[in-house]
Amino acid sequence: MTLTVLQWAAIGLVAVAILLSTLRLLLGPTTPDRVVAADTLSVITTAGLVALASIFDNPIYLDIALVYGTLAFVGTVAVARAIEGNRE
């Protein structure tokens, strides 16, 4: 399917969001900062997968988005727990 101007603009904005989040992921400075950036990136990725479902006109990507979201959430909580347990 061909994309409209507005859709291209939306994709551009999401690309900016991914770029800035990745920059925070690389800069840090602390581990929790990187976890925050990774968490934000994973939510953006979930939205991106749903957008892919629309672009490819294939609802199977919706299930992928759902499972990806679940795993990303579990991963975030697991890493946060690991950080928390460090100094106990």
Binding site: L6, A10, I11, V16, A17, I18
Partner: peptide
């Protein structure tokens, strides 16, 4: 879609 993308970009700018 555009509004969603704009909010994401602003949030990352905040990040």
């Amino acid at each position: 879609l555009l509004v969603g993308g704009a909010f994401m970009a602003l949030g990352s700018l905040g990040l």
